[in-house]
C-alpha cells in the first residue's frame, strides 16, 4: 500500500474506532471524550499554524472565542437556530483571523508571539467591556430548548457525542487533505526556510495568511461547537490560559502530526482530571492542581520528547505518518 493509502486508512480507522467507542464507553468517559473531541478540533486548528507553518501564536484563544461568542451571542440574543449560529461563529472566526493575520503576519518570531498575545488580550478585555451583551466573566447560559438540531437536542449525551465526532472527523480529514496539498507543502517549506521559499517564487505571505484564516476558522468552529454543545459562553474561555492550552496539547501529541492533537488533548485532560483525586490522596495538603501537572508535563516533554508522542513514533518507526 502507498503511504498516502496507509494514511487515509489510519484516519478512517480512527474515526471508526471513535464511533465504536460511542457504544461501549461508560457515561462519564463518553461525556469526557465528547468534550475532548471538541477541544481537539481547537488543537488541530492551532497545529495547522504552529506545527506545519511554524508560526507560534500565543493568542489563539481569540479565534476560539470568536466562534464561542459569534455562535453564543447569535443564539442567545437573536434566537438563531443552531446551524445559523454555528455559521455565524465560523464567519466571526474567519473575519477575525483575516484581520489579525494581515497585521500580525508582518512580524515574525517573538514579535509574532507578542502581537497575537496582545490581540487576544484585547479580545478578552472586550468580552468584559461589552458585558451588557456578554455578562463578562459570569457569561451566558444557552438554554437546552434553544440547542436543538431539527428534532435532536444537542444537550442529549448521544447526540452531543455524535455531533462532536462529526465535527472532529470533518476537521481531521480536512487537515489531512490540506497538509497533503500544495498549500501544505509550501507551509512546511516556509517553516523550514522562508527566504529560500521566497526565492523559489512562492508568495509566502499569501500562504501564511491562508493558513492563519484556515486555522482561525477551525478554532472558531471548535468554539462555536463548545458554546452550542455545552451551553456556556464566558470570558474565562478566552483568557490567556486558553491560548497556551492548545500549544500544550499539540506539543504533547506531536506538532505537525494530524492525529497528535487528539492524543495530546486526551492525555492532558485525564492528567488534569486525575490530579484532583489520586494525586491529592497521595500528597494530601499539597493542593496539586492542573498547574503542577501541566508544568511538569511540559518540562519533561520538551526535555525528553521534544517531538511529542506521535512525532517520536514517526521519527523512530512509522515514517509515513502524516
Amino acid at each position: 500500500m502507498t503511504d498516502a493509502g496507509k494514511a487515509w486508512m489510519l484516519h478512517v480507522a480512527l474515526i471508526a474506532a471513535l464511533f465504536a467507542l460511542h457504544f461501549v464507553l461508560p457515561a462519564y468517559h463518553h461525556g469526557v471524550l465528547a468534550r475532548v473531541m471538541v477541544l481537539a478540533v481547537f488543537a488541530m486548528g492551532y497545529n495547522l499554524l504552529f506545527g506545519y507553518a511554524g508560526l507560534l501564536s500565543l493568542g489563539h484563544a481569540m479565534f476560539f472565542g470568536a466562534g464561542l461568542y459569534g455562535a453564543g451571542l447569535a443564539a442567545y440574543h437573536l434566537g438563531w437556530s443552531v446551524s445559523a449560529a454555528f455559521s455565524a461563529g465560523i464567519l466571526a472566526g474567519i473575519s477575525l483571523s483575516l484581520a489579525v493575520g494581515v497585521l500580525a503576519l508582518r512580524t515574525t518570531g517573538v514579535a509574532f508571539m507578542i502581537v497575537t498575545m496582545m490581540f487576544a488580550q484585547a479580545f478578552y478585555l472586550a468580552t468584559l467591556h461589552f458585558n451588557a451583551w456578554t455578562r463578562g466573566d459570569e457569561g451566558l447560559v444557552l438554554q437546552t430548548a434553544s440547542r436543538t438540531l431539527g428534532s435532536l437536542s444537542l444537550a442529549d449525551p448521544a447526540t452531543r457525542y455524535l455531533a462532536a465526532l462529526a465535527l472532529f472527523s470533518l476537521v481531521l480529514l480536512l487537515t489531512l487533505a490540506v497538509v497533503r496539498s500544495r498549500l501544505g507543502r509550501v507551509l512546511v517549506a516556509i517553516r523550514e526556510n522562508e527566504p529560500r521559499t521566497i526565492m523559489l517564487g512562492y508568495d509566502t505571505f499569501a500562504a501564511k495568511l491562508a493558513a492563519t484564516v484556515l486555522s482561525g476558522a477551525i478554532c472558531a468552529a471548535a468554539g462555536a461547537a463548545y458554546a452550542l454543545l455545552f451551553g456556556y459562553v464566558g470570558s474565562t474561555l478566552v483568557s490567556v490560559q486558553y491560548s497556551i492550552l492548545p500549544l500544550l496539547w499539540v506539543l504533547m501529541g506531536g506538532a505537525a502530526t494530524t492525529i497528535g492533537p487528539l492524543i495530546g488533548t486526551l492525555l492532558m485532560y485525564y492528567l488534569v482530571d486525575l490530579s484532583g483525586g489520586p494525586l491529592d490522596r497521595l500528597l494530601p495538603g499539597w493542593h496539586l492542581t492542573y498547574l503542577g501537572v501541566v508544568g511538569v508535563a511540559l518540562v519533561l516533554l520538551i526535555l525528553f520528547f521534544p517531538k511529542g508522542i506521535l512525532g517520536t513514533v514517526r521519527g523512530r518507526w512509522l515514517r509515513w505518518l502524516p
Binding site: L56, G109, V110, M113, I244, L247, L248, L251, W286, H287, L288, T289, L291, G292, V294, G295, V296, A297, L298, V299, L301, I302, L303, P306
Partner: peptide, 26 residues
C-alpha cells in the same frame, strides 16, 4: 540541556511558570 533553542526554551519556561505557581500555592 535544551541547548538554548529559542522555541524549546519558550515551552520549557511556560512549564516552569506553572511549576513555580504550583510551588507557591503548595
Amino acid at each position: 540541556r535544551l541547548g538554548y533553542d529559542p522555541e524549546a526554551t519558550i515551552v520549557a519556561t511556560i512549564g516552569m511558570l506553572y511549576i513555580l505557581q504550583q510551588a507557591a500555592l503548595t
